[in-house]
Design a protein around this nucleic acid. Structure first.
Lengths: 197, 197
DNA sequence: CTAGGCCCTCACGCGACGTGAGGGTCAAGC
DNA sequence: GCTTGACCCTCACGTCGCGTGAGGGCCTAG
């Protein structure tokens, strides 16, 4: 019933699943400074502290750096929107990157299961930034019919059709679930978008 | 047409989108040691090197540590399966964690949009390991009706119903796409599973 | 033969903590 | 009041995956 109740660092650590050291760190860098100390120097966290930590954990789960989290939490609304929008752009880039990698990985796996050698050109689409097509010619010329290339495929193709079908099945289910998880990212981005209008 | 063609570190960097320093690092730790050097000491990468790097990048995108990647790539089939299975377990834990966080975040957001104060008990479900219910009582007793708690909610609830609906719409689309991306994780896990049988 | 672009090896810095070392604090029980 | 044991404190160095120079060789074109 006491309105100004506080808790120790160990309690907060157990409650959140973070370590004591992590909370020390957040104090050191000014991200989460406890609202008080006991006469003996012990940190004391109150309700507002816990609420702030909840937000910190949520943002951190979205991949934001601690300094960025501090900026977002300490800035007024308008600045918040701008900052979050920049983060949104970064996330978009990351999403697109992963999406491309995933596409190539999927084709690679299927090909392996069939025991078929992949078109070497496709291999390099898995890699990052800027259009890899601009190197595709060079690649095909250099690696198109290297022995080590094809050989390294055959090493890893002992994988029955049953195994593969079973895998595909399970994949679909988990895929959907994971999609729901990742909506947390997207929520953050779209929230920022809404704020700027 | 030459079968033993090689490329320099800069070419490989441009091709993959990694930095030269990153390739230096992989050489230092023995993860990707170039198959040769020129008389002048320049690194030379051949087809097998590039193929290995492709695998490295794929595993890294799945969140594996570089030392783990080395173990997986250098181990024979049976050990590979064991290692990948342990990684699978880790990923499962992480997935479950994210799934819980996402669920609570979703409810929090909806509640904020409605301007409704959340059941304080729910706040702590966002946090990690082991059943948080075991602390729920303690939490409610301490923070259930703190002023700072409710206050910090009202600060952040300026968000129209239209904005919210628009957000929900966009979310669904991106959610599906992201699910596809994350199947890369799942593929790795299930591949390991198939190997052990 | 010189200019430029590429490459080399140290070697220190960073972010987000982990992991002790060495010592003070606090509530409980005697 | 005193001790015990759990908890807390502040340094301070280690880890991982690189970034970022510094100071210098290599190598091809003009």
């Amino acid at each position: 019933m006491d309105d100004s109740q506080t808790m120790g660092i160990g309690d907060l650590a157990r409650l959140t699943g973070l370590t004591v050291r992590t909370l020390h760190h957040y104090d050191e860098i000014g991200l989460l400074v406890p609202s008080g100390r006991t006469s003996g120097g012990y940190r004391e966290y109150d309700g507002a502290d816990v609420d702030r930590l909840r937000q910190i954990v949520a943002y951190r789960a979205c991949g934001l750096a601690l300094t960025d989290i501090a900026e977002v939490l300490d800035a007024p609304g308008t600045e918040q929107a701008g900052h979050l929008q920049r983060q949104m752009a970064l996330l978009d880039k990351r999403i697109e990157e992963l999406r491309r990698q995933r596409a190539v990985l999927g084709r690679t796996w299927e090909a392996k299961q069939m025991g078929i050698a992949l078109d070497p050109e496709e291999y390099f689409e898995v890699f990052g930034e800027s259009d890899p097509r601009q190197y595709a010619d060079e690649v095909q010329e250099r690696w198109g019919d290297t022995d080590a290339y094809a050989e390294s495929h055959r090493r890893t193709s002992g994988f029955s059709k049953e195994d593969w079908l079973r895998a595909q099945e399970q994949t679909a289910a988990v895929e959907a679930e994971f999609g729901a998880c990742m909506a947390a990212y997207v929520h953050a981005a779209i929230y920022a978008n809404a704020l700027t209008r």
